[in-house]
Amino acid sequence: MQSEKFGQQVVQQELALDSYLSTLLDEIPSEIELNQKELKVEAKVILPAQQLKVIPQVIEKKRVQVENKEEDSNKPIKPLAVMPDWAQYEFQALFFKVDKLILATPLTELLRTIKVEKAPTKIPGQPSWFMGLLDTHEQRIGVLDTGQLIFGKTIGQKRDLEKQPFQRILITQDGKWGLACDEILSIGKLEPSKVRWRTLRKKKPWLIGTVIDELTAVIDVNHLVPHRKTS
């Protein structure tokens, strides 16, 4: 009885979380869609010969999770093979804000943060989400409009950057890119079991999961930044 109640609460929490994030980020697949596609993704992941030993374990664990969700909901979630390395264990994350959305990303993926003191130099012919180049600490970084990357062009471009400029820039570990944001909030530890991991990432591959208690999107900056092309 208690376990049934607890299960309902979890479902309600997840529904609320979905509703919240759907408002901020469109294109997130529904729970049912996710579960169905998760199984398909696993089938793809376990196909390579070197992972044959893992097959029975992965499939069994997932089936138990899907079929006996209520029983397993109070057990720690096992890290999934499709997650980045840093997501496998507890990690330190930087919490920051873009518009009204709170985002978290592992500290190991970042070099440092800087205050925006001068506008980046705009380069003609680049996409609207590329704000320009900025020289900082002997490095030249490409500054990206995180709002446009996260919320999409239509919503992101509504922001008037002259009236409401970004205040801070997160510099990626390779020192090549800067993610413009509104505010740095804090640094905190994140346990994988507190995160609802998103295993299907065909759309929005940078959205790795959500911190259930804090309605925070966990992002992988490596999938958010573009890969430089040689001109």
């Binding site: 012919g125 680049q126 573009p226 430089r228």
Partner: peptide
Amino acid sequence: IETAPNVGNEETSKYIQGVTSLENELLI
């Protein structure tokens, strides 16, 4: 002179030859 990043698919960005620092600002 450093090559300018070409992050988009826009053909127009082809005419940007590079960037360099000049008196604390970037010269395109």
